[in-house]
Nucleic acid binder design. Structure first.
Lengths: 126, 126
DNA sequence: TTTAGTGTCATAATACACTATGACACTAAA
DNA sequence: TTTAGTGTCATAGTGTATTATGACACTAAA
């Protein structure tokens, strides 16, 4: 996997795993790859993956059965969703608006976003 | 100044200075605070500010007159603007759209953004 | 019981951001 | 010339992310 220099690797692996869960590639109760297994796949040290799994366990996203492996917790997706939604609305969105103002972007620049937003929000909600 | 743990300090100082320039708090030709001065103000080491100024010099945003100080380059704001706009449209926006999809945000969630975007983009453009 | 696969822990080594500090060259003004 | 303020560079120390590796406890299945 390719990592961004500006963010800790163990956090980027956590991001990746959370996204897999949100995309239902891992269901509640599923075993996730073993520490050694994922380390090899990501071309990263065991300890780094261990650190990722530890923090996800602390956050109630993974459960741990010693000698067997780590498992996706029951309400993992819900917790990830809540955590990310809160961070998104309270931190990222305000920064986005601020940046758009500062960059004085034109309507044309923003069209792709606005369209994408409409598409994704029109379907489910009333 | 308060720093975010997840991004290098010298980059956060660069971000701050670029924002000052974009907000016209520093005009082209203006001298920016000396390395020692800004270091004290930011409660940071001289070398850290030196590193910030060095990269901004490499990017053509600051000019350097040895023994005198660092100065805002002529087209500094333009360069910052171009750099940030490109990064925004090519990296941040796609990630944003992806996240909105993943989080399945409702219209109500997005209202604040959309309104803010309309306000800022309606004025200047045709 | 043995074996292979789990997680867990400890240690040492490397890399890098940041700090602390001193010394030096350059510039402008007293 | 002297002085004070610039940038510049070198050195050493600290903290932490990451790697590398070995050893050990636990579990399930052969």
């Amino acid at each position: 996997m390719e990592f961004n220099e500006s963010r800790n690797i163990f956090l980027q692996i956590a991001d990746w795993l959370c996204e897999q869960i949100l995309q239902k590639k891992f269901a509640p109760g599923d075993r996730v790859p073993s520490v050694r297994e994922l380390a090899e796949e990501m071309e990263v040290n065991r300890n780094t993956v261990m650190r990722t799994y530890s923090i996800l366990q602390d956050q109630g996203i993974l459960d741990n059965k010693r000698g067997i492996g780590f498992f996706v917790a029951e309400k993992a997706a819900l917790k990830i969703h809540q955590r990310q939604k809160e961070a998104f609305l309270q931190q990222e969105l305000p920064q986005l608006v601020h940046k758009v103002k500062l960059l004085q972007l034109s309507k044309d620049d923003l069209k792709p976003i606005l369209n994408a937003l409409k598409e994704t929000t029109n379907e489910d909600q009333q």
